[in-house]
């Protein structure tokens, strides 16, 4: 899992920084050199989208997704277990859906042979991130389930206010 985390972190950081760099490069070219880079917008947006899709699972890994604690904080350990199990089931189903529907979109776009309008990249390549994100999410939910059923989960830890920027 540590290796996976590292890979996720590297990819997301590289996509974000490369996207930022490309956009700033196009600003520089447009404003200083006076030459427009019509491909830049499509590419940097795509890089950010990829980073964000991978981010769905890193956010799950680091408990960054917002949850509502009102009920959870006021119930006993038995009910807390129920909460955890429901979250695992819903999350796993959601990830599975992501993989299935994402794959379907990739195959459809591949069969249709669609390309992006500006750069002309086959669109199924940009869509690949959908099933990939689904697989990553699924791995995180399976990891959570494993921890839960082997009692490696600290239920009280959930009470900690998780804050995001």
């Amino acid at each position: 899992m540590k290796v996976l985390s590292k890979i996720e972190n590297i990819f997301t950081a590289v996509f974000l920084l490369a996207g930022t760099g490309i956009s700033l490069y196009s600003v520089f070219m447009r404003y200083v050199v006076g030459s427009s880079q019509s491909w830049a917008t499509e590419i940097f947006t795509m890089l950010f989208v990829w980073a964000i899709f991978i981010g769905f699972s890193t956010a799950l890994r680091d408990d960054s997704h917002i949850v509502i604690d009102v009920v959870y904080d006021r119930v006993g350990p038995g009910m807390k277990k129920v909460c955890e199990i429901v979250t695992l089931i819903v999350g796993t189903a959601f990830s599975a859906f992501f993989i299935w529907a994402g794959m379907d979109m990739v195959l459809t776009a591949y069969a249709q042979g669609i390309r992006t309008i500006d750069v002309g990249v086959p669109i199924w390549i940009t869509y690949l991130i959908m099933p990939i994100a689904g697989v990553l999410l699924l791995i995180r939910f399976i990891e959570k389930a494993y921890r839960f059923f082997t009692n490696k989960v600290d239920l009280e830890k959930g009470d900690e206010a998780e804050w995001q920027q």
Partner: peptide, 30 residues
């Protein structure tokens, strides 16, 4: 209220509802 992340609660319940009205949900991800 069972502490499923807000985003997943919204997404999962909407997908179920779309299935109930015979919507082809494979496009949801797009």
């Amino acid at each position: 209220f069972l502490r499923v992340p807000v985003a997943i609660s919204l997404g999962a319940s909407s997908i179920v509802a779309l299935l109930l009205v015979d919507f082809s949900v494979n496009t949801v991800i797009q």
